[in-house]
Design a protein around this nucleic acid. Structure first.
Length: 386
DNA sequence: GAATCCCGCCAACAG
DNA sequence: CTGTTGGCGGGATTC
């Protein structure tokens, strides 16, 4: 099998196409006021990637509570504010599983989230398990569930006896093997590959960080999403000679042999928004930006970086107030949900950490430039194409 | 050489 | 059937 044609651009750099970077751009693009809906086509076009990649990102982000599926081709943007709740749910669920004994694998027993998701048919229980079987089987291996399982490992690490501070993807893969029987090495390797994808996105969300076992030099990941720790605020990047604005869209396309592999004009005649020919410059900008973001810490620099470039352009702090408002509102709405002491404290931690974090992200400073590519707000809420 | 993980084929899944 | 989702793993890149 010749598999596929491999164009070999001599200056090809896989780092420029990393999921982490794409995720960062995705966040930058949609984490802003007025955004509440995300269209897959729109995202793919503006980020300059094939649809397939958008699915990867969207799936893991959804499992973290940043997005929620609204309809075909459409997701609802929730933003960082959705993370705490999602993690809290994940954690309580994980603890419950552990208490139940057995393996904390990916059991289809529990639902991912307790929220919506009840089968479309409310009063119809005639569905035979024939079809849902395969459907469920497929979902069992979904990136989303894998992500949640992976996250659970970290969320429960503090109560674990060995106290899992860092784990290698290989360990994680072994730990997350759904069924114990099919623990093939082949199978495990495949799962590891998926975990790499997930780790990239999670890293760019600053929920985890790549490190290495202090002793065994082996690469591993550590949770930095603030569970017990005070989330490192090193996210401040505007410390060097900021180029002041890499005023360009986040497009990072390579300008395919003509156009994106998008389906034949399905109804929208615009869409030719991005796709410029000066890709070189864009690449430069993106790389420069990432370089800067990564700076300040060790030389580890895992591909991804922080979601939004919190560049300060004014010493104002009203933003924080605004962010706080959201948080309080959310906290209020969630309050009745958590009565446990433990969960309450946990949530308090999330609040604290995320508040400061979010404050930085809140300032969508130069991000405006990123939006200028389109001639309208990101929210493309019409177009009910048929 | 090992670790990382992008690319995109193509199978499930709606409609 | 057409279009949407998204497993899955070959093999290129990077470390």
């Amino acid at each position: 099998m010749e598999a596929g044609i491999r164009p070999h651009p001599q200056n090809y750099s896989r780092k420029e196409k990393s999921l982490g970077l794409l995720c960062a751009n995705f966040i930058t693009l949609y984490n802003r006021d007025g955004v509440d809906s995300v269209g897959l086509d729109d995202a793919a076009a503006r980020l300059g990637v094939e649809r397939r990649r958008i699915y990867d990102i969207v799936n893991v982000l959804e499992s973290i509570g940043v997005l929620s599926r609204k309809a075909k081709n459409r997701y609802r943007w929730i933003g960082f504010s959705g993370i705490p709740k999602a993690l809290a749910d994940l954690k309580s669920e994980a603890l419950r599983e552990i208490a139940g004994g057995g393996s904390p694998g990916i059991l289809p027993a529990s639902d991912d989230e307790e929220e919506f998701k009840p089968p479309p048919q409310a009063s119809a229980d005639d569905l035979p398990q024939g079809k849902s079987r395969s459907a469920e089987n497929r979902r069992e291996k979904s990136l989303g569930l894998l992500t949640q399982s992976f996250v659970k490992v970290f969320l429960t690490s503090e109560v674990s006896k060995p106290k899992v501070e860092t784990i290698s993807l290989d360990e994680a893969a072994r730990l997350l093997l759904g069924d114990g029987d099919s623990s093939t090495m082949r199978n495990n390797a495949a799962k590891v590959r998926r975990l790499y994808d997930i780790a990239n996105v999670l890293s760019s969300m600053k929920l985890i960080e790549k490190t290495q076992n202090s002793e065994s030099r082996k690469p591993a990941f550590r949770w930095i999403g603030a569970i017990g720790k005070p989330i490192q605020e090193e996210a401040v990047l505007g410390k060097q000679k900021n180029k002041r604005a890499f005023g360009t869209d986040v497009t990072n396309t390579e300008i395919k042999k003509g156009k994106l592999a998008s389906p034949p004009a399905e109804g929208k005649q615009r869409k030719t928004v991005a796709l410029r020919s000066k890709t070189e410059d864009l690449k430069e900008c993106n790389l420069a930006a990432s370089r800067q973001l990564l700076r300040g810490n060790k030389g580890y620099a895992f591909g991804p970086f922080c979601p939004a470039n919190a560049e300060e352009k004014k010493p104002g702090e009203e933003d924080e107030g605004k962010a706080t408002l959201d948080w309080e509102a959310m906290a209020a709405s969630l309050h009745p949900r958590y009565h446990n002491q433990a969960l309450g404290e946990l949530f308090a931690h999330y609040l604290e950490a995320w508040k400061s974090w979010y404050a930085q992200l809140a300032q969508d400073g130069q991000m405006e430039h990123l939006c200028r590519a389109a001639d309208q707000p990101i929210c493309v809420g019409e177009n009910q194409g048929v």
